[in-house]
Computed example of a mutant assay.
Amino acid sequence: MTKETFKAFLVSQIDNKNYQTNIVEKVVDDLPQGDVLIRVEYSSLNYKDALSAKGNPGVTKKFPHVPGIDAAGRVVISKSAQFQANDSVIVTGFDLGMDTWGGFAEYIRVPAEWVVSLPDGMSLRESMIFGTAGFTAALCIDALQQNNITPDRGEVLVTGATGGVGSIAISILAKLGYAVVAVTGKESQYDYLKFLGASSIISREEVNDNSGKPLLKERWAGVVDTVGGNTLATLIETTKHSGCVTACGLVGGAELITTVYPFILRGVRLIGIDSVQCPIATRSTLWKKLASDWKPSHLERVVTTVNLEELREKVNAILQGKIVGRVLVDLSRKDRLAKL
């Protein structure tokens, strides 16, 4: 089709245990088959991307590989009548950046059913400040609202508060009028969390109960949990009657050891959040909310911007828990227009 070249953050396998990353020049014809060719302007770094960059087989099985589960840019060629050249679009989730070459490159090619039109009121840059993390936060908040968790019901607790999902969840919830309790182990970031809108901040220890009691004092109307494990169990046991807990992460462990008592005696609802296979209709609805009523006024406060060459350092940092907020990957080479 074309020999147009582009830059990509390529992960290669050296042996069974070792992988290396390099910025390389690839050809558009190297991309997988798909309906829509997109010139990527922005991507973002997520924990899953870092795992892929380190060769984690639970994320990526085929190498060499380009990570990046998020991408935003402009359509170059489309076989689908739904999209035209120069349309601004967003792609997150599905297989992008997992076993399909992803957004850490200047071009991607994907099926049309993975693509969402950029909503009015949002720039391509803003869409990737949100990225999968922001979209996941939106899914959590939407689930809380669908389960009648309104601001007058009481406090909403957010774990992993300084991370991407947590930072954006706090920002949106505060804008919508909720009293937000942020959970963090980073005392140095208290001012950051207060700036985002947290009404109070507590330590991780306060939501990590090991007493073995099946029910604890009722505290939260709603929960956005990015941690899982015993933290999630504790939050279920401390949620108020008819409250709602959303679960979207497992950094604290994949096992959930609890009892049925919170569910049958307090009517607590546990909602699993999946941003990967979420239907396009839901995606479009929530992206429109993020572009309007749910968009925080301080998006730039939660983001650090890097280019492809600076990405390796951030991959290591996110795996070490050293990232605060979001990392935006800028691929908008203004001096190079796509002419295919």
Results as ranks from 00 to 15, higher is better:
residue 1 M to I: 10
residue 6 F to A: 01
residue 8 A to M: 06
residue 9 F to H: 06
residue 13 Q to Y: 00
residue 14 I to H: 11
residue 15 D to C: 03
residue 18 N to E: 04
residue 20 Q to H: 08
residue 21 T to G: 10
residue 24 V to F: 08
residue 25 E to S: 11
residue 27 V to G: 00
residue 32 P to S: 03
residue 33 Q to A: 15
residue 34 G to L: 12
residue 35 D to K: 08
residue 42 Y to F: 15
residue 43 S to D: 02
residue 45 L to P: 02
residue 49 D to V: 05
residue 51 L to F: 00
residue 51 L to W: 01
residue 53 A to K: 09
residue 58 G to V: 02
residue 60 T to K: 01
residue 63 F to Y: 15
residue 63 F to K: 01
residue 65 H to M: 15
residue 73 G to T: 13
residue 78 S to R: 12
residue 78 S to M: 11
residue 78 S to L: 11
residue 79 K to I: 00
residue 80 S to T: 11
residue 80 S to F: 10
residue 83 F to G: 03
residue 93 G to D: 08
residue 94 F to P: 00
residue 104 F to G: 00
residue 104 F to Y: 15
residue 104 F to A: 00
residue 105 A to R: 13
residue 105 A to P: 14
residue 111 P to C: 04
residue 112 A to V: 07
residue 114 W to K: 07
residue 121 G to K: 05
residue 124 L to N: 05
residue 124 L to Q: 06
residue 126 E to R: 01
residue 126 E to L: 03
residue 132 T to W: 11
residue 133 A to Y: 11
residue 134 G to D: 01
residue 135 F to L: 04
residue 139 L to V: 13
residue 141 I to V: 12
residue 141 I to R: 13
residue 143 A to Y: 06
residue 148 N to E: 12
residue 148 N to L: 07
residue 149 I to T: 12
residue 149 I to W: 08
residue 150 T to E: 13
residue 154 G to C: 05
residue 157 L to G: 13
residue 163 G to R: 11
residue 167 S to F: 09
residue 169 A to H: 12
residue 173 L to I: 04
residue 175 K to L: 08
residue 176 L to F: 02
residue 177 G to N: 05
residue 178 Y to M: 03
residue 178 Y to I: 02
residue 178 Y to R: 06
residue 179 A to W: 00
residue 180 V to W: 06
residue 181 V to A: 12
residue 184 T to L: 05
residue 184 T to S: 13
residue 185 G to H: 04
residue 185 G to V: 04
residue 185 G to E: 03
residue 187 E to Q: 12
residue 190 Y to Q: 12
residue 190 Y to F: 14
residue 191 D to V: 09
residue 191 D to A: 15
residue 194 K to N: 10
residue 195 F to D: 13
residue 198 A to T: 04
residue 200 S to F: 08
residue 200 S to V: 06
residue 200 S to Y: 06
residue 201 I to N: 01
residue 205 E to C: 05
residue 206 E to Q: 15
residue 207 V to Q: 02
residue 208 N to T: 14
residue 208 N to L: 15
residue 213 K to H: 14
residue 215 L to F: 12
residue 218 E to H: 03
residue 226 T to H: 01
residue 229 G to Q: 05
residue 231 T to I: 11
residue 232 L to D: 05
residue 233 A to M: 10
residue 234 T to P: 09
residue 234 T to L: 10
residue 235 L to T: 03
residue 237 E to T: 05
residue 237 E to G: 00
residue 239 T to A: 05
residue 244 C to F: 04
residue 245 V to C: 04
residue 249 G to E: 01
residue 251 V to Y: 07
residue 254 A to C: 01
residue 256 L to V: 12
residue 257 I to A: 13
residue 257 I to E: 11
residue 258 T to C: 12
residue 261 Y to A: 14
residue 271 I to S: 00
residue 273 I to P: 02
residue 274 D to Y: 09
residue 276 V to E: 02
residue 280 I to L: 12
residue 280 I to V: 08
residue 280 I to H: 06
residue 284 S to N: 15
residue 287 W to K: 10
residue 294 W to E: 00
residue 297 S to E: 15
residue 298 H to N: 15
residue 298 H to T: 14
residue 299 L to F: 12
residue 300 E to Q: 14
residue 300 E to D: 15
residue 301 R to N: 14
residue 301 R to H: 15
residue 302 V to F: 02
residue 302 V to D: 00
residue 304 T to S: 14
residue 311 L to D: 00
residue 311 L to P: 03
residue 314 K to E: 10
residue 315 V to E: 07
residue 321 G to W: 02
residue 325 G to P: 08
residue 333 R to A: 10
residue 334 K to V: 08
residue 334 K to C: 02
